[in-house]
């Protein structure tokens, strides 16, 4: 299982998504490799991803993909992350 967190810079906000996604996955006892990436590296980083975590702003730029695109509103709300990850993976 591969999950990619996307933001404009590949640091900062996508890093927070990665860190919190890993915490939530551990709690849910799900195995996944989570990568933080920026839009311009998306094609290489996300080619084989099952899930993309991002903000609403990037959905159009991400474009067509086989991955489930999950939009996160509050990056610090691990309940929101858990709910949305569980729905996508469960």
């Amino acid at each position: 299982m591969k999950i990619v967190a996307i933001c404009g810079s590949g640091i900062g906000s996508s890093g927070i998504l990665k860190v919190n996604a890993e915490r939530v996955l551990k709690r849910l006892e799900l195995e996944a490799d989570v990568t933080a990436a920026h839009l311009s590296s998306l094609s290489s980083d996300a080619a084989d991803a099952q899930v993309i975590l991002t903000s609403a702003e990037f959905v159009d730029a991400i474009g067509p993909t086989n991955a489930d695109v999950i939009v996160i509103e509050n990056y610090f709300d691990t309940e929101e992350l858990a709910r949305k990850l569980e729905a996508a993976l469960g």
Binding site: C7, G8, G12, S13, I16, L39, S55, A56, E57, F58, A61, N74, Y75, F76, D77
Partner: peptide, 13 residues
């Protein structure tokens, strides 16, 4: 890229 840096209610990173 738009206001994506507003990553939580009331907070911009």
């Amino acid at each position: 890229h738009g206001p994506y840096v507003v990553i939580a209610p009331g907070l911009a990173l």
